[in-house]
Design a protein around this nucleic acid. Structure first.
Lengths: 112, 112
DNA sequence: GGCATATTCAACCGATCGGTTGACGATTGC
DNA sequence: GCAATCGTCAACCGATCGGTTGAATATGCC
């Protein structure tokens, strides 16, 4: 549960997994629905979700035959704190933040 | 130079590389000096440094036969910003931050 | 010139990663 | 009961990772 920085950063290093997290930001989703927009097998997505769960970034709860995936943003905190120990020890500027959101988040899919 | 989130997060996913970054926070260092505290070959450290450089997290400048490694904290910004798009969109609490620094940064070596 | 120092290169190794496929176990609905 | 749906498991694949070793390439020093 209290996953290591290793597992959290490794989980974030894959664009598919970052996109999944972004999707879950909007709402909880079933595994099949998470898989739908991707061009890969359900099994592959299932593995990605297991990695995210192992990192604590999501939790999964089975209700009936449907397994619901829920974002756990607090799991990002240790990593975020670690990163902020670099730079000037001040939180990210909000203007930069918004500018970045438009550029980076919005174009995530064709960034690589 | 403007490395992708993929390469930055992947670079951060290794404890040796995070420790190297922490060392460079104090001062620029030569490759040999970076390698000194680690129980692995110089070639292995050289590879780690190449990965950090490819992610833009450090720059390397050769002066004479010595290659100096310099931390580039700004390279963390895109990743930091990406992470802050989760959670409550507010910067990390400074109390949490200090508590974490003592726990996580201070005990990085035996964390895994 | 010749030796020591600093660093990388190249080849290799076992382990892990990201993906596939096909079979399997639960659960639901008719 | 039975077929369809949801999701995972297991085996496999090629690629990448983190490490080693030994040779090679600069550079500095006397």
């Amino acid at each position: 549960m209290a996953a290591s920085l290793d597992t959290v950063f490794a989980a974030l290093a894959d664009p598919t997994r970052r996109e999944i997290l972004r999707m879950l930001l909007e709402d909880d989703m079933a595994v099949t629905d998470v898989a739908h927009p991707f061009q890969m097998s359900l099994a592959a997505i299932s593995k990605h979700l297991a990695i995210l769960a192992a990192a604590g970034l999501i939790t999964q709860e089975k209700r009936g035959r449907v397994k619901w995936c829920k974002l756990e943003p607090d799991a990002l905190k240790p990593a975020s704190v670690w990163m902020q120990s670099f730079g000037q020890f001040e939180p990210v500027n909000l203007d930069d933040f918004e500018a970045f959101l438009e550029r980076e988040l919005g174009t995530e899919r064709d960034a690589d």
